[in-house]
Each structure stands twice: as C-alpha cells, then as structure tokens.
Design a protein around this nucleic acid. Structure first.
Lengths: 117, 117
DNA sequence: TGTAGTGTGTAGTATATACTACACACATGA
DNA sequence: TCATGTGTGTAGTATATACTACACACTACA
C-alpha cells in the first residue's frame, strides 16, 4: 500500500553511505524505538509508527515530516487542529483546491503570504 | 473536553419538538447504532463515535458533517486524503492561513472558485 | 578466536477505539 | 392494568494501534 518503509530505508541508507552511525540500531536508538521495530517498519512488516515517532524519524533523517506522514497515511495533528478550528471554512477551501494544479495553489500561498488582509 | 455530545442532544431535541421520531431510540435505529450508545454519547459518557457514524448522524440531523467531526476532534478522511496527495503544498497553505481572518480565507476560496487557472 | 556490531525473527503486551446486548425504571394512553 | 415507548445502567466484546524484550545468525576486525 504505502511506500513508507521503503522510503525510510532508502533515506537511511543514503545517509549511511556517508555516516556509519545510520545503522538500524543507532538510528532506532536516536529515535527512541527498538531496532527490530524499525527493521520491521522498513520492510513493511509493521505498519508505519505513530505521528510522534514519524516526526522524530523525519528530524533524524532530515526529511519533511508532512511528506513522511503522508506516506504513512496520516496528516499531522497540527494541521488537523487548524482545520478543526474553522471546519466549514477550511473544508470548503481544501475541497475547492482539490483538483487545482500545483501552480495555482502556490499562487494562493504566495498571495496570502505577501497579501494585505 | 469537546461539546460533541451536548451539541448532538441539542440538535436532536430541537428536531424532536417538531417531530416525535427524533427519540434516542429511533434516531439510533436510523443511524445504525444501539440507543444506549447514543445516549451515552449525548451525555459524554462515551467519546464521540467513528467518522462513519458521525456522518450518518450529521445526515439524520441535517447538520454539517465537517462541523460535527471537528467537535469530535476529527477531520474527515476525504479532506485528509486531499492533503496527503500534496503534503508540502497543502501543509504550507494551511499553516499560512492559520491566523488569517475568516474574510481573507473566504476571499481566497472565492478567487479559486471563480478564478482562471 | 572472540568480541563488537549488523539486521532480523519470535512472541508477546498495554491501551485505545468503537461498539453490542440486555436489563431496568419510569411515563403515557387504551 | 398492561402494552408500548422513553432514556439509561451494567457488563461485556472485537479489532486496531503502537509498541517492547530477547534471542538468533552473520560479518568484520583485532
């Protein structure tokens, strides 16, 4: 289903080519989980871990947490909380942008960033 | 924590004033859950039910599903899926709009709706 | 040859999620 | 008075989530 495991293994091994401390064991230790658990996750024998663990993995691997969470089939609680505060507004916005091409969404992002409210 | 239960009870009793079929038992039957379960949810003795059940409640009560889900501390899988497809883009957008006033977000919604991509 | 490190296999556990089934006490109307 | 409907109390269950603990086989190096 998701390539989460493969992606993590890939990222870890890329780091490892330059830095031997990116072994399953040592990365797991840094992230705060059991090595066998990480190993199983990388081989998709276990589903992706919790949001917290994914965020620590992202940090340790220099990856974008939102992207890793997406691969894991999740959306960060931070983003969810923003939506939950104004569910109608954000619901409408997001559905509206569902099929908009990237550049159109980006334009909106920039407009809002630079824009006068 | 959340007023989900109170909100549901309120909505149900409002309907009930006009339509006797909005009893706990009958609504529960329509929604496909046990009456005692609905009763407990309304009194916050149980946490809010699953997304599916919330959506059926919304339908039966004529309420906005996104709003009920938000009260339940959830975000619909449909919206999450849209975000997951382009996590960086939507992540940035949503964070950008976190503190924007409603009218600014609405303006964006309208722009996108009417806009030429 | 032994010790340190590698990845992985086996066998669990704790907690949360999302409910069901059934019984009870009370009210209302026929 | 009794059948019907009301809300609710008690006592469970099935499944998913998110892991841990420990052992094993293999490699490399000193």
């Amino acid at each position: 289903m998701s390539n989460f495991g493969t992606y993590i293994r890939q990222a870890r091994e890329t780091h490892r080519a330059k830095d031997a401390s990116f072994s399953v064991r040592q990365l797991a230790a840094r992230v705060g989980i059991e090595p066998s658990y990480l190993s199983k996750i990388e081989r998709s024998e276990q589903p992706p871990p919790s949001q917290q663990t994914i965020e620590r993995l992202a940090e340790a691997l220099g990856e974008d947490a939102d992207v890793l969470l997406a691969l894991a089939g999740k959306v960060s609680d931070e983003l969810q909380e923003i939506i939950r505060r104004r569910p109608k507004l954000f619901g409408e916005l997001i559905r509206q942008l569902k099929d908009a091409p990237d550049h159109a969404v980006l334009r909106v992002v920039r407009e809002v960033r630079d824009g006068e409210w």
